[in-house]
């Protein structure tokens, strides 16, 4: 059963849900299904229990951080400049990212199928980082969602026990985010260069220097 068939099956059974197939251009061709977070739980429970799909096994759950990125693409545009038609470079800026993503790899042990990859996106990276938890459907998501909460800061609504998994209680950062900055526990290197040298300078300035 390919992803298009699954998509149309979901649309027929879960009214109102917005689905989008995210194509994967790499040779792996593992395309994924983006589902809106409002209907994600219903869609997921259909995927688990629907007789045609029966994705009874949730293998992998993880978070991904996509910070806001501005991509500028140059395009040649014909324009009239002083009455003469000329090729002019026009820079088009598009923004991508700016959200956190949770990815679920689902398999069917019964029908030996998979993976069906389910994605959910938060609205932004700061306040509106809520996603529905799928732990009530697949218990295997329990620790993995806690890990995504710990390291990425995605808040899974409906998770029975959403605490930090790996870092200690009282830790405030989400270290797997791309913009996380390590604490200054400067490490000595005899031949410091690049990043280490930069940090060594910062550290020594803070310590009073040589």
């Amino acid at each position: 059963m390919n992803l298009e068939a699954i998509k149309s099956e979901i649309e027929a059974n879960v009214p109102g849900c917005r689905l989008e197939i995210i194509p994967n251009t790499s040779p792996s061709a593992q395309h994924s299904l983006l589902v809106d977070s409002a209907h994600a739980f219903t869609v997921a429970s259909f995927l688990r229990d629907g007789a045609s799909v029966r994705l009874d096994y949730c293998s992998n759950v993880t978070g991904i951080d996509w910070p806001l990125k501005e991509i500028s693409t140059k395009t040649k545009v014909k324009k009239l400049v002083d009455g003469v038609e000329k090729d002019v470079d026009e820079i088009v800026k598009t923004q991508t990212g700016g959200y956190l993503e949770a990815v679920y790899h689902l398999y069917s042990m019964e029908q030996r199928q998979g993976p069906v990859i389910l994605r959910m996106r938060t609205e932004d990276r700061t306040d509106r980082v809520h996603l529905p938890s799928l732990t009530p459907l697949w218990r295997s998501a329990d620790f993995q969602e806690r890990e995504a909460f710990d390291l990425f800061g995605i808040i899974f609504d409906g998770h029975p026990d959403l605490r930090r998994l790996l870092m200690w209680e009282g830790f405030v950062d989400h270290p797997m985010r791309r913009d996380y900055v390590d604490p200054d526990d400067y490490e000595y290197e005899p031949t410091a260069h690049d990043e280490v040298l930069k940090r060594a300078k910062e550290h020594q300035a803070a310590e009073g220097g040589l």
Partner: peptide
């Protein structure tokens, strides 16, 4: 356990940060 790191980050009686001579370092590279 602190908010970002351990407090303190080292025991200064046991271990001192070996300071690298940053004025020379990196010049060859």
């Amino acid at each position: 356990f602190g908010e970002h790191d351990l407090v303190p980050t080292q025991n200064r009686d046991v271990w001192q940060v070996p300071l690298v001579n940053i004025s020379n370092a990196g010049k060859n590279e």
